[in-house]
Amino acid sequence: MDDASLPDGASGRTVAAPTRREVYEAEVRRRSNRIALISTASVVLAIVFLVPLAPGWEAVQRSFFNGRVFAATFPGLLNAFLLNVMIFAWSAPLIAVTGLAIALCRDTRAPALFPLRLFGIAYTDIFRGLPVVLVIYIIGFGVPGLGLPRPWNSPYIWGTLALVLVYSAYVAEVIRSGIDSIHQSQRSAAASLGLSERDTMRFVVLPQAIRNVVPANMNLFIALQKDVALLSFIGPVEVFRQAGVYKSLYANFTPYVGAALIFLVLTIPATRYADYLMNKQNRART
């Protein structure tokens, strides 16, 4: 619509011949690209040539970048990583649902529901205040120690619960910040139409709030993917533990580097995507 109202010349000229300004800017761009390339190349070259000159390099290489050990252990690491993926796959939805429920608890206004609100506050304060690994230890060994029969004492169940408890506290806070970010005028508009508070939350506030916090939550889930490894403390042999076993058998740290590579292949694209979403949202807001 708006394009149609532009004078023909305005859009036509850019296609036909570049203006003086465009020629100048293209030149500036080319020059900065060249400089960036040269400086990056020098840094990379410096690392590649200087680091191996360090006296301990050979020993480090043998311990951390050992091709023989890598080849022998990498398939096993990949196999163990499937367990990480599985734990993540069942934890993530539980965390999302619990986080939402806790966020709603904290947002209740009815006086009768005050205990719920108090619970929400205590929950987020406590579980955001504890290191994940402590919660995993305490719940993962503590609850089964009460004498639950198998399979209900499985470290998978209680380790997952520990992850859910900690991460849902963070997700709840993120969702709550999303709820707070929805302008009061949206609630007013909904109220003026006679919508109940419940419907206002469900149809007007939450859909917008959750959309706003998708990037922030993605960062949390990337962190979760890494913290799944902490479940190994209570028994499950996921990739980090498997790498530890190989490390011990080969007296070599290369399996850790292999595990790190596996994590990076997954987390870097996810991080880039979250950043992209975040930037897109920031642009839309301005």
């Binding site: 060994f141 120690g145 470290p155 190994s232 403390f233 209570i234 028994g235 533990r241 530890g244």
Partner: peptide, 21 residues
């Protein structure tokens, strides 16, 4: 079934006493 592995003796004992292994 796959074994569960732990950091040290203390953790293995905790798992035995909790009936997890």
């Amino acid at each position: 079934s796959d074994p569960l592995l732990y950091n040290d003796n203390a953790d293995v004992n905790a798992a035995i006493m909790a009936g997890q292994i």
